[in-house]
């Protein structure tokens, strides 16, 4: 198995990891040469909570080939760190997704390469509603 992006850690349970500036605590997904907030060049890894709140969403009707539509894209606040991901496991209609919705990280397969390695994607699914 291989995560779709380096920010997704699969063990022991799936969770997101950010690079955190050791000076100001700003968090980034992926490599940065220096902190965009304070220019410090040292980072540590921070584990993000797996539950959070939808602070913005959209339902996208058109996408590149291979991406099912419509899909719900959202900005999710995970304890003060925002992440962009899809909302999955719900009808992609405005009746089923709402601002302020509580959601939880989930993972799913995105297909295998020729060696049989499964790509693991992530999204968020509503908690209890």
């Amino acid at each position: 198995m291989i995560p779709v992006v380096s920010a997704l850690a699969l063990e022991p349970e799936p969770h997101l990891v950010a690079n955190e500036c050791t000076a100001c605590g700003a968090r980034f997904f992926g490599r940065r040469a220096a902190c965009a907030g304070c220019f410090n060049e040292a980072f540590t890894q921070a584990t993000l909570p797996t539950e959070g709140e939808v602070v913005a969403f959209t339902i996208v009707a058109f996408a590149m080939p291979g991406v099912p539509t419509p899909y719900v894209a959202a900005t999710v606040d995970l304890g003060g760190t925002k992440v962009q991901a899809n909302i999955v496991g719900v009808e992609p209609t405005p009746d089923h997704v709402h601002l302020g919705q509580q959601v939880r990280l989930t993972t799913f397969g995105l297909g295998q390469d020729t060696h049989g390695t499964e790509a693991i994607g992530f999204g968020f699914t509503p908690i209890g509603d």
Binding site: V4, A7, Q84, A119
Partner: peptide, 18 residues
């Protein structure tokens, strides 16, 4: 820099303008 193994647009949120 984000270590993506495939295009993310539509799979991990949206990158499109709309």
């Amino acid at each position: 820099t984000d270590g993506a193994i495939m295009p993310l647009d539509g799979r991990v949120g949206t990158a499109g303008m709309p």
